[in-house]
Design a protein around this nucleic acid. Structure first.
Lengths: 127, 127
DNA sequence: CCGCATCCTATTGGATACTG
DNA sequence: CAGTATCCAATAGGATGCGG
């Protein structure tokens, strides 16, 4: 009864789901997508300011990865100093509902989870 | 117009969303939750077999973390050799729809994303 | 059977300095 | 302004061996 489920979950070559989720499962992608989804088009330093504690390097690689995956589009204005704007693509927008569902779940249950963690670690120190 | 959004996204102390999403954003949690969600109660080695390429250590820490967060319950049968069963809690079950939405999005769009990546890296090598 | 402990490697991500 | 390049620290995660 379990045998027939093996193939479904085993990562034979490269699991399609993990292949995609690994990307947005990093430290900043979901946050950047949420911000762009809510505020629309933003410049590099605007995103930087909004997040506040992201390093320039990580914002660069996050945006580059999202651009490579086709979730974010990048528009360069050929002027000095340069102006670069980022916007969600249609594909990026299609991801918003899923992310919203997930973050809402997180918001709703975070206090329960935190309490559970404390209870768990307290029970460990007793043993 | 951006100022009033600052506080919302800046990670002043610890962002509640990231605090929770960091956990399920690791390599195995979503997979384990999906498997338990679909197959119900499973023993340690059953999950191990179904995934196939997970190390024993990582399955242990993944299950322990999910248990600490209250997403998975652990039942020990006091016998030799030991028998330990894992099941989603109600909280764990409540996460299933969100995960399903996300994985369905991933499945639906993975080919598009893969194509986008190839196009992107091909355009890089041209420059 | 179900782990835990240890060691080791690879990857992630931050800090800093520099460029068009 | 919008990056790139380099170095470094922290963490994640795999391999192996042992134990109840």
């Amino acid at each position: 009864m379990i045998k027939e489920n093996l193939e479904k979950y085993q990562i034979i070559e490269d699991c399609p789901v993990r292949n995609v989720l690994d990307r947005i499962g990093d430290k900043w992608s979901i946050l950047v997508i949420s911000i762009l989804g809510e505020l629309g088009t933003l410049r590099f330093n605007e995103i930087n300011s909004i997040i506040g504690n992201i390093s320039q390097k990580m914002l660069t690689v996050t945006l580059k990865t999202l651009e490579a995956d086709g979730l974010v589009s990048r528009k360069i204005y050929p002027q000095v100093p340069p102006r670069v704007e980022y916007t969600l693509t249609e594909l990026g927008n299609s991801l918003l509902p899923s992310i919203a569902t997930l973050t809402q779940w997180a918001l709703k249950n975070m206090s329960t989870i935190k309490a559970s963690r404390e209870r768990y670690f307290k029970s460990l120190s007793v043993k």
